[in-house]
């Protein structure tokens, strides 16, 4: 059985509940555990990179929309200093998002070498 981000079982996502206004945004949002499950499926189908992406996604699933968008913006070229990227990586650590944090730290090091920092 699949659960939505809210914890509601996917079987409960019915038109009747929609009509009774019982469904909220988090009821139609994917749960991190489901993304981990999809990562395992991807791994079993010869795509470890897709699996890694789903695992980063599982970490981001708990991060609010506006923060996700801000993090993306910070990673664009010439937006952030090395220190700012390190701050971002720490925030991701705080969100229990070590894979995303590692990606940001790797970016910071490559950006520094290639002149892509702010």
């Amino acid at each position: 059985m699949t659960r939505a981000y809210s914890g509601r079982a996917s079987e409960e996502l019915t038109v009747d509940r929609l009509a009774r206004e019982e469904l909220a945004t988090d009821d139609v949002r994917i749960h991190p555990d489901t993304l981990e499950h999809q990562a395992q499926v991807a791994e079993a189908h010869a795509n470890p990179q897709l699996a890694a992406n789903f695992r980063r996604a599982a970490e981001l699933a708990r991060v609010p929309d506006d923060q996700v968008m801000a993090m993306y913006e910070a990673l664009r070229p010439h937006r952030s200093t090395g220190a700012e990227l390190e701050d971002l990586a720490r925030r991701l650590d705080d969100h229990e998002a070590p894979r995303c944090a590692a990606l940001v730290r790797e970016a910071a090091s490559v950006y520094a070498r290639r002149g892509l920092l702010a």
Binding site: L35, N53, R56, L60, Y72, L75, R76, P77, V104, E106
Partner: peptide, 26 residues
């Protein structure tokens, strides 16, 4: 190429993050 990629206002890292962001919302 790197120059055109950056002219497009992204890097492989920002795009990889974006990919994860989409997946994070299904």
């Amino acid at each position: 190429t790197e120059s055109v990629f950056v002219d497009g206002d992204d890097t492989p890292y920002s795009k990889a993050f974006l990919s994860s962001a989409y997946a994070s919302r299904g």
